[in-house]
Design a protein around this nucleic acid. Structure first.
Lengths: 137, 137
DNA sequence: CACAATCATTAGCATAGCTAACAGAGGTCG
DNA sequence: CGACCTCTGTTAGCTATGCTAATGATTGTG
């Protein structure tokens, strides 16, 4: 049954992210800042509202998170040309680097787990990831 | 390559939980409280330290989250018989109900997405979930 | 029994979350 | 054109969540 699979997939996703989240400590950033930076790095420059929506957080909350990232030299904030109400937030080089190092640590932790798999299991998982990506897009 | 699959699996897990997290608003509980309650309901009664470790949070932080759950009538806290330093935290009936309703909403949102899948895709995903469960245990 | 180790809480701080109120830019329409 | 409304972001002020350090209470141990 699909609902049963959804239940187990949900649990698996929770466990997976609990596993990799332990690596984030090494970044020196808090969870929300790291997560916002991740949206900037992988999704490209965004407005404040867009970033807040992506993170499912209110605009004032995101204003402060962005402010802390700017202070830390990890992001820039400038007025949008053509609509000066809007703000264009982009990651700096340092932001990109820090985030990619962090993601590398996460992926490494996960890769170590997946290394135990047999080839046939790996292929099966690989195909499932394809399916998931399409479904969640 | 395994590392590449880990990267994509990681992203998919993030997107999946972002999708279902929107449903949590209806529970009336904050994220950390809901998450702690979930550990209690699905993992059974625990000590405070155990709960803090499961949530990857410090003991003082968990003390307060538990306090709020107790105040809300969703959990009980009593001295462990045989080791009175320890505390045994358990969900109440109301806590179990609230959490299960919340998880049902999450699972329903996910099920709606998975309903689009072809049978062969569903089978492939189902097998992959099996593999994942074993790997992450 | 003295003393160390364990477990939880309290105190005090920074960050993250919210709503309400505000400020400024851009549209709209009499 | 100018009053007015909308859109976007920030500021203000509150609660909740996160931390470390210090404390209290129990248990284990030499």
């Amino acid at each position: 049954m699909t609902e049963d699979m959804a239940t187990r997939l949900h649990s698996a996703a929770i466990r997976l992210l609990r596993l990799v989240r332990r690596e984030d400590q090494a970044s020196g950033l808090t969870g929300p800042r790291l997560s916002a930076l991740s949206v900037l790095v992988f999704g490209g420059p965004t407005s404040l509202g867009g970033l807040a929506a992506a993170e499912q957080v209110s605009a004032p909350t995101m204003t402060r998170i962005v402010e802390s990232l700017v202070q830390a030299g990890l992001a820039t904030r400038e007025a949008e040309p053509g609509n000066r109400r809007k703000v264009r937030i982009a990651p700096t080089e340092a932001g990109v680097r820090l985030l990619e190092e962090g993601r590398e640590r996460r992926v490494r932790a996960l890769t170590e787990r997946l290394a135990r798999l047999a080839d046939s299991e790996r292929r099966a998982l690989d195909r499932a990831v394809d399916i998931l990506e399409r479904t969640l897009r």
